[in-house]
Amino acid sequence: MNATPRTLFLSPRATVTGRALADAARRRGIGVETYGDWRTPAEWLGAPGASLYAGPLFADAVGRELGVGLLEAAPGWLAGLPVELAGRDVELTTVAEARGLRRPAFVKPPNDKSFPARVYPDGSRLPGPDAVDDDTPVLVSDIVAFDVEFRLFLLDGAVRTASRYARRGALDVAPLDGGDPLRDEVLAFAARLPAEELPSAIVVDVGRLAPDGDWAVVEANAAWASGHYACDPDGALDVVLRAAAPAADVGPRDVPFLRAAPHRV
């Protein structure tokens, strides 16, 4: 029996990663379709074998129409890590609670971009209830500095491909397997991540803390919305195809990590 043909759908917003994934898909004989706007053509509704690469807002708008199951880490995954993996105190709370902070902290939505992820001098600088709902989950983190940061595309807990993306806070992109002197340290730290607490296809950013040199998790990201930097596009595509697969193909192990459908008024 022949497998259902796959099709990779892309948002209207052209990106370097989207083009790289599309080229990798075509080399495999996988179809590629790009949206012209935010409306799903009738012939694409419930397309068999659909996958998706797009930002969270667009994915929420069209994912259900395509029949795609979107995998992401649990909102509190980073906050639940032991300090030897997180490297700092991280708390999962609501934006309403975070508005009461009276100290500087790094604040970000776990899986969305409903407001900028950055250091806030105190909670009063966070968006108000007119911009962000009070019950929106947020991660509140101690402020740390990373000397160097890497992006890992993980499939079944193993690093499928990886890239350095920053050094001392500035963009500095290079493939991990391109002779990076920290390759073995990165892979050793990746092997310590609790894979059973993550979906089978996910992106995790890790980094070396300054000035002590300890390794720590930066954050987890949905593979279907992550840039690939200098990662191998074929390896990244493997992860994306699993992270945004037909909902009917999502196995029991990944069902708890399905992104909830957006609330529609």
Rank of each mutant, 00 (worst) to 15 (best):
R208Q: 00
L241C: 01
V95T: 06
V107M: 05
T93W: 04
Y35P: 00
W224H: 10
S124P: 13
E91W: 04
E219G: 04
G157P: 15
I202R: 00
S163A: 10
T94N: 15
E197W: 06
G178P: 09
R259W: 15
T34Y: 10
V62R: 12
L139M: 01
W38C: 06
A245V: 06
D184H: 11
E219N: 10
F115Y: 11
P252V: 14
S200H: 07
E185K: 13
S226I: 05
P48F: 14
V107S: 06
G76A: 12
R102W: 07
P137R: 04
P5Q: 13
R13L: 15
F257M: 06
R64V: 15
E196F: 02
L78E: 03
E149R: 03
L198T: 02
V239T: 05
V203M: 04
V32T: 14
D147N: 11
A3V: 11
L155Y: 04
A42W: 06
G207L: 03
E219T: 08
L85A: 06
P252A: 08
F58A: 15
A105G: 02
A222K: 07
V62A: 09
L81Y: 00
P137V: 08
V250K: 03
P175D: 14
D60V: 12
L66T: 10
R27L: 12
D156L: 13
A188K: 05
P194D: 01
